Computed example of a mutant assay.
Amino acid sequence: MPGWQPTHYSRAQLEERRLAALAWIERGTHRSQEIANHFGVSIHTVYTWKARLRRNGGLQATIASGATSRLTAAQHEQLRTFLREGAVHHGFPDPTWTTRRVTDLIGRHFDVWYHHDHVRKILRQLGFTPQMPDGRAAERNELRIASWKEQVAPELEKKVAEGATLVYLDEVGFSLKGVRRHTWSTRGVTPLVTLPANWEKLSTIGAITSDGRLFQQTKSGAIRSGDVIRFFQHLLRHVQGEIVVVLDNAGIHRAKATQAFVGLHERLSLVFLPPYAPELNPIELVWAYVKRNVLGNFCARSVSELKAKLVTAWQRVRYIDLPRQLMNANLCRDQ
């Protein structure tokens, strides 16, 4: 049994073993087989060590320099600039970068052609990582959104400072078809999730407030203007003082019945978000959390089972104090 046994053969430990063997080799009192047995290596390894000692004068580790990069440092910086300019700027039909597109970009500008798999390494060296892009509606008006942030958002903060409660309201649907998420499985075997053929759904109207509370009501089918009015009544019963509801431009929010109800209540007012700007409504993150962390890969067999799962979801959202976390983050972002 060898006398020298590291727990893990890391690069440092392999060098430690070689340097320990060096003393035995230089002493010249041990045969090669004895050295091999003591350090747990083959006799051929000992012969290699001795030849290396004669050639280099030591057994210290050498650092492999690797192949010289075919792109200069200046070209790497230029490539980083090209990537930040976006794929559309460089003639591609959409703004996503793929390794094949970057390979083409490098070839066109620098006349250096890599395999697209190697381009992954270059991208990481430049500080780029693979990410899932967010979807944005083509109909977005960025100027209008910027104007809302600059003019309306500060006014909302003033309202809060004066004692009003902001209420970020939205609706969401939950279907029996479920939300499929990544899971673990045997390599090469795709896991199966059994889904019911009947894709009934539940709809939730909900809101989070500037003081970190969550309100929600869930029903079968779609949310109508009457449901919005009933939810407003619920808010008026549970929220004191002035209520400023921030919501999108859905038809049920602008319906005549909805507007008439708001007109009858002085302490209730509506502020509409710019179209196609869900990122301005923090309750969207509550919906995303529920679908990802509670309903992910959950396959309800009936609407009642799905509704029971949603009860658990709302309890969990309140337990982790998610609304307050989101409102605090939203306030810090606006400042």
Rank of each mutant, 00 (worst) to 15 (best):
130 P>T: 02
212 G>Q: 01
10 S>T: 15
332 C>Q: 15
140 R>T: 06
101 R>S: 14
17 R>V: 05
328 N>V: 15
248 D>I: 02
165 T>L: 00
123 L>A: 00
216 Q>A: 11
197 A>K: 11
243 I>S: 00
18 R>S: 01
74 A>C: 08
208 I>Y: 01
164 A>R: 07
308 A>H: 15
93 P>S: 15
111 D>Y: 02
168 Y>T: 12
192 L>F: 07
119 V>F: 00
232 F>T: 07
249 N>K: 03
153 A>N: 13
59 L>R: 14
104 D>N: 15
50 K>T: 01
99 T>L: 11
156 L>H: 08
227 D>P: 07
295 L>D: 00
40 G>L: 05
229 I>Y: 00
307 K>H: 11
321 D>N: 05
207 A>G: 04
141 N>R: 14
228 V>A: 06
127 G>K: 10
32 S>N: 08
44 H>A: 13
270 L>G: 09
200 E>Y: 10
170 D>F: 09
198 N>E: 07
299 C>L: 09
276 Y>M: 09
214 L>P: 07
114 Y>D: 13
81 T>M: 05
233 Q>E: 06
308 A>N: 12
24 W>R: 05
99 T>C: 14
250 A>N: 03
238 H>K: 08
151 Q>I: 10
325 Q>M: 01
126 L>F: 05
148 W>C: 03
216 Q>K: 02
59 L>Q: 01
286 V>F: 00
